[in-house]
Design a protein around this nucleic acid. Structure first.
Lengths: 156, 156
DNA sequence: ACCATACCGTCTAGTCTGGATTGTCAAACG
DNA sequence: CGTTTGACAATCCAGACTAGACGGTATGGT
């Protein structure tokens, strides 16, 4: 994930990666922001990222892919994942354990509707210039929010 | 989640909880098996579970809800979750970062089809005697596997 | 000059993860 | 009958991760 983020940015500080990730890939693959700092360090130590550090002030570290980093990323991309995603849904958990469906569904509908609106707005703005993969991932997100909305809507 | 599991079982050892969880609620809320042992202990210490330990042999610990445990569970059930689920999907991650859609989609279709078949078989067998919440959660799982299949299918 | 606010990185305690390890038991086998 | 085997069950450990607090740094406005 981190290699992908850096590749996508060209070069970036962990903080910038965090900002970008939070709005995009974070919707289906999250890590803690603190993790980005240690992970970049680790990848730099492993020779996959190149690290440049400011001397004064905030002493930001800026990272870019090395040749080895690009190779590792390409290798990863070329090995299609067979694993299914993991879902972690508090709402479904409550439903499973016998919560009253009505109020739960109402709460979930609201949340999912908000998320869907967010995705749709982003899609409307960005669909023409987003790289294919990113656009497709966003469209997957939209389709799934719609599906959740349908599911919870039927229960409300 | 653990309170729910214990309530559902009436009384059970962590090992039994693990077995049940792996086949059911584990599909949308997972924890490590080792975690069940520590969590049950913690809940017992907090007065929410009652612990009974075998003297000889495997020294199994059997847990059951206490009054306070049932109250805590009821309170949790009565507070509808507004949080959205979190998804963690390696396939989408690769797609996002520019992997070739074709082969990736093919791999994902296969995995999702298998999962869907598993869910559908379970549904066919159990739909008549499963508690409502559990059946609904299973139906949500089925709907979502179908949706994923549609998504990746269109890309393959 | 000063303040408010946003930016950015680091730290810590506690929790969780993955997997190995140790031990228990019942049934099958010679 | 003693032994072996494989499933059952609990525990342990090092390392990774989490949540969020904290402490500095920059910037624009007064």
């Amino acid at each position: 994930m981190v290699l992908g983020l850096v590749a996508n940015a060209g070069e970036a500080t962990p903080y910038q990666l965090k900002q970008f990730a939070a709005r995009s890939v974070g919707n289906f693959w999250t890590i803690q922001h603190a993790q980005l700092y240690t992970e970049c360090e680790r990848l730099a130590k492993a020779g996959l990222l190149d690290e440049e550090r400011e001397e004064g002030g905030r002493r930001r570290r800026t990272y870019a892919l090395t040749g080895a980093g690009r190779e590792a990323l390409d290798a990863w991309r070329a090995t299609p994942a067979t694993e299914l995603g993991e879902l972690r849904s508090p709402g479904l958990l409550q439903l499973f354990f016998g919560a009253e469906p009505g109020p739960l569904a109402a709460a979930q509908v609201e949340s999912h509707a908000a998320k869907l609106a967010e995705y749709e707005e982003l899609h409307a703005q960005a669909k023409d210039w987003l790289p294919d993969g990113q656009r497709l991932a966003l469209e997957a997100g939209i389709a799934h929010e719609r599906e959740w909305l349908k599911f919870w809507g039927a229960l409300a």
